[in-house]
């Protein structure tokens, strides 16, 4: 049974945005601080640090979770995706991000990475959500700029486009 002393700095092997990585952290280090300060992934934003605001939301094994309520050592062997995973080198923005831009889904942008990581998991699970469902999903995030309308529109537009692309493909095929 692994027992980690409070002073012991542990080696953490995990997958970060698709690449195998290693970092060092003591048991008390939060995943949010580990990602930002050790791994240099500053797209993970830190807001309230007690699980309320949602800014630090990342995906662990594909599930959106609060990185401020997770210990760094707990991602040993797991796959962590931050907002940096959404953009490939070829395409500057994903369709979801492009829609946030088009529909004014952000102003200051502080809450945006967390919302994108929640929304991208959510749209995988529920590809054709109602507006009420999207608003329910967004209840786990605080945004003080937009009033949420632009965010809801961006997510709804992304879902609609993906549904249309899928039906085009299926009729073409």
């Amino acid at each position: 049974m692994p027992k980690l002393s409070q002073e012991a700095v542990q080696k953490i092997n995990f997958t970060l945005n698709g690449e195998a990585e290693t970092g060092m952290a003591e048991p008390r280090m939060l995943l949010s601080d580990f990602l930002r300060n050790v791994m240099g992934v500053t797209g993970c934003h830190v807001g309230c640090e007690h699980g309320v605001c949602g800014a630090c939301t990342v995906q662990i094994d594909g599930k959106a979770q609060r990185s401020c309520l997770t210990l760094a050592v707990q991602v040993e062997g797991r796959a962590v995706d931050t907002v940096e995973s959404l953009t490939g080198r070829e395409n500057p923005l994903s369709d979801l991000q492009q829609n946030f831009k088009t529909h004014h889904g952000l102003q200051c942008g502080y809450c945006t990475p967390g919302i994108l990581m929640s929304a991208s998991e959510y749209l995988e699970k529920n590809p054709d959500p109602s507006e009420a469902e999207v608003r329910d999903m967004l209840s786990g995030h605080l945004c003080r700029c937009t009033g949420y309308a632009g965010i809801v529109n961006a997510i709804m537009a992304t879902a609609k486009e993906r549904q249309e692309n899928k039906s085009e493909k299926s009729t073409a095929g």
């Binding site: 049974m1 027992k3 980690l4 409070q6 002073e7 048991p27 008390r28 210990l71």
Partner: peptide
Amino acid sequence: PRKFDLVR
């Protein structure tokens, strides 16, 4: 959090 020993 303050420092703690962690048993996994």
